[in-house]
């Protein structure tokens, strides 16, 4: 059974539709990249998958392995967070909040998990630093470590490289690709189609005409149907 199956999904706010007729399937181990212009509804789709907003119509079928708290989410950064007084450890530890249950405080295992994921992201030495003093790339790694604490199987990443310089963006992509190779399913939103084609297995394009298929199908379609390079107006 597929990890995630979306059928005839319509998205929007207050019954105003933004995206209609969305169909796609995600299998375990896939690397799905969601592309589309600004405001086309990519973030809304991700929030709908996470039940943060409800769909207007259609179905989202989740496989067994996704049923309980197995999704790690890296939201688009907000302005508030950029100058929030919090240490790196405090933020990564908050990824364990789903494991708290009825306990008020984090356990030693939670802290150990947080440290492991910091190490995995290559930022073990930043543990005690203040989040707002880190570089953009470091901040994104912290949020990725937090997402990993929440779930080991599936990650939903909303524009993880926005605002990073090309070098930091590239190493962020490498990091995500490594996680995918370890077997973690990746669903990522990105502006940067060119870069993403190096890593993704599937592409979902949201816009006037929705497209879903493998990377190869997407590239053929781009070369055949569309006259100009579509990446231009997406960037």
């Amino acid at each position: 059974m597929a990890l995630l199956m979306v059928r005839d999904l319509s998205l929007g706010y207050d019954s105003r539709a933004i995206v209609t007729n969305l169909n796609f399937t995600v299998e375990e181990g896939d690397y799905l990249c969601i592309v589309g212009e600004n405001g086309s509804g990519k973030t809304t789709l991700m929030k709908t998958l996470l039940h943060l907003t409800s769909p207007l119509s259609g179905r989202i079928v989740k496989g067994d392995s996704l049923s309980g708290g197995q999704i790690g989410y890296l939201p688009q950064q907000t302005q508030v967070q950029r100058d929030f007084p919090a240490s790196v450890m405090e933020i990564v530890l908050s990824g364990c909040q789903g494991r708290l249950g009825r306990r008020p405080f984090y356990s030693r295992e939670d802290k150990e998990l947080a440290r492991q994921n910091l190490k995995r992201m290559g930022i073990a030495d930043l543990e005690k630093r203040s989040y707002r003093e880190l570089s953009g790339g470091q901040q994104q790694r912290v949020l990725l470590a937090r997402a990993l604490c929440a779930a080991g199987r599936v990650l939903l990443l909303d524009e993880p490289v926005t605002g990073l310089d090309p070098g930091a963006a590239r190493s962020m992509y490498e990091l995500i690709a490594d996680l995918n190779k370890e077997g973690i399913t990746i669903i990522m939103i990105s502006h940067d189609v060119e870069a993403v084609l190096d890593y993704a297995t599937h592409i979902l394009h949201i816009g006037e005409d929705n497209f879903f298929g493998t990377k190869e199908e997407y590239m053929e379609r781009g070369a055949g149907k569309k006259p100009a390079k579509e990446g231009g107006d997406l960037a």
């Binding site: 996470l50 943060l52 989410y73 908050s94 990824g95 909040q97 405080f105």
Partner: peptide, 19 residues
Amino acid sequence: YNRIFAVTFDESFAVSAGT
């Protein structure tokens, strides 16, 4: 305390993590 921190820092993430 820990939940208040989580909800203050990032409400979307908190909801996605089951809070």
